[in-house]
């Protein structure tokens, strides 16, 4: 139950991304995007304001196109549930450079804290394993951030992790919302010019 979740998302994401070492980040829409921006702006974050369910597919497409770069899909439990079948696609394609982290507060935090499907029933790590993603990690303490960073940024992928985060009231941290600007900045940082 989320009432017992202890991890504070902003500090946790900030400490995690401090160890990313060039990993490109595809945050899901809403809070994970605000968390990334709050951790310090970077052109290597593809901020998202929409397309619920597409964080993992986008990260997968990027991972296949850039096999020498590490890619992290950083999303929430509701966004992951909407694109849950994409875990099967990830397992099937099996990119060694792809990591997925779900910040699981077990609620729809952006829309009024309605209870989510991972609150009482669904176990996201077991679902990922069921789809065929063999390496998974469930984190419940802030102190595990170093171990989690090694797993997400260094272990042979695809890897999948959850961090059980507390429901929290964090100040709005809103990055640029022009999709063309976000995408072009990301591509420029990658050194990509052509389609």
């Amino acid at each position: 139950m989320s009432g017992s979740n202890k991890i504070q998302r902003r500090a946790f994401v900030s400490d995690l991304l401090g160890k990313r070492d060039g990993t490109l980040v595809i945050p899901g829409l809403g809070s994970p995007t605000w968390d990334c921006f709050a951790a310090g702006d970077s052109p290597e974050y593809l901020y998202s304001w929409g397309g619920m369910g597409l964080s993992v597919p986008t990260a997968l497409g990027l991972a296949l196109a850039q096999p020498n770069k590490r890619i992290l899909a950083l999303t929430g439990d509701g966004e992951m549930m909407m694109g849950i079948g994409s875990l099967g696609v990830v397992a099937d394609q099996a990119p060694g450079n792809l990591a997925i982290l779900v910040l699981d507060n077990e609620h729809f935090g952006e829309t009024g804290r309605q209870t989510g499907l991972s609150s009482n029933q669904a176990d996201l790590c077991k679902i990922a394993e069921g789809f065929g993603i063999k390496q998974t990690m469930a984190v419940t303490e802030h102190g595990a951030v170093g171990e989690l960073a090694d797993f997400l940024f260094k272990a042979p992928g695809p890897v999948f992790a959850t961090a059980k985060i507390a429901l929290s009231d964090d100040p709005w941290m809103l990055p640029v919302k022009d999709g063309v600007a976000i995408a072009q900045r990301f591509r420029t940082a990658l050194g990509v010019d052509e389609t």
Binding site: L54, S55, T58, G61, A65, S86, A183, R187
Partner: peptide, 18 residues
């Protein structure tokens, strides 16, 4: 794919990667 809308993410990610 498991469902077609996943492809909108995959083609976007692929394009981001050149």
């Amino acid at each position: 794919l498991s469902t077609e809308e996943e492809s909108m993410g995959i083609v976007t990610g692929h394009w981001l990667g050149g």
